[in-house]
Nucleic acid binder design. Structure first.
Length: 175
DNA sequence: CACTCGATCAGCG
DNA sequence: CGCTGATCGAGTG
């Protein structure tokens, strides 16, 4: 029911991410289709988003999101974030994501540490589930969460992406 | 409500 | 290294 109102592309060095906005902020961010490997290019390419039809509010958020995403991908600290719309998500998930936002660039935490941070130390596996449900990857740094032994753990959108993102932040982990 | 499945983890052999 | 049990949230019927 929380329909996404606008979907705008963000072109990065990695390809075209798609940002979804609701009336409350950025609600979802999609990874680029695997570098044209499989993606035959959206043939509905002519989705001409005349910027005229987009509320200035959304455009403002989009500028912030674009800047933040590009900075993140370059391994830098974003200077400003758009508001994130987590409506419709559970309290547990929101608390997990909020905890992830606090992981500084270049650092990592384990699923267990996140669980402890949100005062639910036994919910380790549930934390993993919440990470996978994260609608705004990269910006909400789910990639900075590793397994307790500093091994990679998993990543719903592909471990390669996780490796890649970590590499840009010069994060070390166990093979 | 009952059951299943995970991006877990510590313990043990 | 591999196996196991404990445990929690979410999804399904």
């Amino acid at each position: 029911m929380k329909a996404t109102l606008f979907e705008l592309p963000i072109t990065t060095s990695d390809g075209e991410y798609i940002a979804h906005y609701s009336e409350k902020g950025l609600a979802e961010l999609d990874f680029p289709n695997l570098d044209g490997l499989i993606a035959p290019k959206p043939n509905k390419s002519g989705r001409a988003v005349s910027s005229k039809s987009i509320p200035t509010q959304i455009l403002k958020w989009h500028r912030a999101a674009t800047d933040a995403l590009r900075k993140m991908l370059a391994g830098r600290e974003p200077k400003e974030f758009p508001p994130l719309d987590w409506s419709g998500k559970t309290k547990f998930q929101k608390s997990v994501w909020q905890a992830m936002l606090k992981i500084p660039l270049g650092k990592t935490k384990s699923y267990g540490e996140i669980a402890a941070a949100i005062r639910n130390p036994k919910a380790v596996r549930a934390v993993g589930g919440a990470c996978g449900a994260n609608p705004i990857p990269v910006l909400v740094p789910c990639h900075r969460v590793l397994a307790a032994n500093k091994k990679l753990g998993g990543f719903s959108s592909g471990l390669d992406r996780k490796r890649d993102l970590l590499a840009r932040e010069n994060v070390q982990y166990n093979a």
